[in-house]
Simulated assay, not measured.
Amino acid sequence: MSYILSIETSTAICSVAIHNEGKLIANSDLYLEKSHSNSLTPLIEQLLHHCDLQMRDLNAIAVSSGPGSYTGLRIGLSTAKGLCYALEIPLISISSLDSMTTQVLNFHKGDNSIYIPMLDARRMEVFYKVSDEDLVDVEKMSNLILNENSFNNHLNKYKRIFLFGNGAEKAWELLKDQSEKFIWIDKVNPSAQFYGEMALKKFEKEQFEDLAYFEPNYGKEFYSPKSKKKSFLDLNR
């Protein structure tokens, strides 16, 4: 048996799950803004308790590789790394975008379709990728400023183009009149419960991350605005 704990913190939703041989045993999603730092560890402890498991029973930990919230990803990764180091088990990374596509594929698969998960990057920008029904990249993860022509290059190749994620609504408003091939699916978010098969495949192939050097793909460079407060040095100039 291989028990894998999955952690997803790339958005405002704090999500954890436990899979055994890729099959979901239990999951918990907390829809509460800015709760990751205080809630993640208790969620993990509660989930293990409900599954009658101990930390030592875990064989690996899967964590979001991004894109998404800088702070959320940092909290999730630091927690995952700390557990992996203490338990001497491997770290597996999973794309937040792939976790959304996996959940959509449970209900909308085949028929010459492509899948475009999007995470909001503010204003008209999104983080996105394009995948086929086998989760093979058609376009690799990137950031994009949306316009009326976004993804029109796929219209002649595919019968259906699914748009989903918290950045997809603003894409839908621009694209819904371009073609009936565009289909918007609401309320699809990254969730650890959909990590199972992807994490198991990486576990079996020993596709592990380096605990010392692995960093998430934030989608773009993190920017921290300069504080307007005067520092001690400024006040003494």
Results as ranks from 00 to 15, higher is better:
Y158S: 05
N38E: 15
K23H: 08
H108L: 06
L83Y: 15
S6Q: 04
F182Y: 14
K140P: 06
A192Q: 11
D29W: 08
T71S: 13
W184D: 00
E8D: 07
E133F: 07
F127S: 05
Y223P: 00
G76Q: 07
K176Q: 10
N153C: 08
G167P: 07
S150Q: 00
D111W: 02
D132G: 11
D134W: 08
N38V: 06
G68S: 04
G66P: 10
A26I: 10
R122F: 04
S95L: 06
Y3W: 09
A26S: 15
N153G: 07
V136M: 13
T101M: 05
L32G: 07
F214W: 11
S93N: 12
R237A: 00
S65H: 09
A62F: 06
I44H: 07
I94Y: 15
F107A: 14
E215Y: 13
A212R: 12
T9A: 07
T11M: 03
G110H: 01
V188E: 11
D177V: 02
S35H: 10
G82V: 08
Y213H: 13
S93A: 12
L32A: 13
I61Q: 02
E8G: 03
T9L: 02
I75P: 03
P42D: 08
H19N: 10
K176W: 01
Q207W: 01
A62M: 01
P216M: 12
D52V: 04
P90V: 05
N149I: 01
L58Q: 02
S227G: 04
L24Y: 10
S39Y: 08
I25L: 15
G22F: 01
M141F: 12
V16Q: 06
L135W: 08
M198C: 01
K170A: 00
I116A: 03
L58R: 05
N59G: 15
E33I: 04
T11I: 06
S150E: 01
N189K: 08
L144W: 13
E197V: 11
K157T: 13
Y128I: 03
R56D: 15
I94P: 14
R122M: 00
L155S: 07
Q207I: 01
I25G: 00
Q46F: 15
W184H: 12
I4F: 14
S65T: 11
Y128S: 12
N112E: 12
K23L: 05
E206L: 00
A121Y: 06
P90E: 07
N38F: 09
E197N: 14
L53Q: 08
A171E: 01
N27V: 06
A86I: 07
T41G: 01
S35E: 08
N27M: 09
